[in-house]
């Protein structure tokens, strides 16, 4: 056991070094963390409230009190971006987390039990892949109404298939390994075997897939809000801030209202992707 631990920590140190050497991944991580922290500690960085109109200061270009200008109601764009980031990032992270959670559970069950259960769940995943995602989201949005919670639910039940595939395939491969058979012989409960013994071995690709999904869901939220079926428009997510600026009058006259949120989304997603790629190089080299 001792030996095993030091080996593991060696691996860890090696991985960290490998990650630190990957410049893009480091840049990605730093940018991601900066944006994240600024959003979380928004009140430290801005004194304006995101929802407070100031009718005497409408559509001001970036200037000293309002470093990114103000919108049509005179609200400070910088503070809206920061407070909006809280929602957007939260949606991306939780959506991806729950999607992966479903994927892991179903993948483990399908891969471990095999046979009928496996083919039933695989069929289910095929169905979810066949119904066009957009239509599914539109319909679910109409069924449950527009709210952040519902959007998360929709993301979770439409975003589990990648993780499911990874976990299931790994489980099928690992099921035959000696140590699993040994555990079974010792009479360990199936749940323990699945989640305590096999699962840790497949966590790396799952973590990578989840990271990629965070970026994907942030983009999805923006896209859905853009066609008016995402988060209720009163909530200042990045997608909604951008959506509020899609009229041509805004596009041609008030660049800061649409360029700023667009660039922020792009930069954040870019950073998450770089970070995810770096993670993949370290954790899951063969998936490249």
């Amino acid at each position: 056991m001792e030996l095993n631990k030091s080996h593991a920590s060696n691996m860890f140190q090696k991985n960290v070094r490998k990650f630190l050497r990957n410049k893009l991944a480091m840049i990605g991580m730093v940018v991601m963390l900066i944006i994240l922290l600024m959003c979380v500690f928004a009140p430290v960085f801005t004194s304006y409230r995101a929802d407070q109109p100031d009718f005497s200061a409408r559509t001001q270009p970036p200037n000293l009190p309002h470093i990114l200008g103000t919108d049509k109601l005179g609200r400070d764009v910088f503070s809206r971006i920061l407070y909006g980031g809280r929602y957007s990032i939260l949606i991306g992270v939780t959506g991806a987390f729950f999607g992966s959670l479903i994927g892991v559970i179903l993948g483990a069950i399908a891969g471990y039990f095999g046979k009928l259960i496996d083919s039933a769940i695989v069929r289910l995943s095929e169905i979810f892949q066949t119904v066009p995602n957009m239509i599914l989201i539109l319909i679910l949005g109409a069924v449950f109404g527009r709210s952040i919670g519902n959007l998360l639910f929709i993301f979770a039940i439409t975003g589990w298939m990648t993780t499911f595939r990874i976990v299931r395939n790994e489980f099928i491969a690992l099921k035959g390994e000696t140590y699993v058979q040994v555990c079974e012989a010792f009479g360990m409960s199936k749940i323990d075997i699945m989640f305590k013994q096999i699962l840790p071995n497949v966590m790396s690709p799952v973590i990578v897939a989840t990271t990629v999904n965070v970026a994907h869901f942030i983009l999805s939220e923006a896209g859905l809000s853009f066609i008016g079926v995402g988060v209720p428009s009163a909530t200042p997510t990045w997608g909604n801030i951008l959506n509020a600026a899609k009229s041509l009058d805004v596009i041609s006259n008030y660049w800061w209202l649409w360029v700023v949120p667009g660039v922020v989304i792009t930069v954040f997603v870019l950073a998450v992707n770089f970070f995810g790629d770096g993670l993949r190089d370290v954790l899951d080299p063969k998936q490249q």
């Binding site: 983009l219 923006a222 896209g223 951008l242 649409w258 667009g262």
Partner: peptide
């Protein structure tokens, strides 16, 4: 990477 990070509609705008 950029192509995958930029929201399609933002690029369109």
């Amino acid at each position: 990477v950029l192509g995958q990070a930029i929201p399609q509609f933002f690029f369109g705008i």
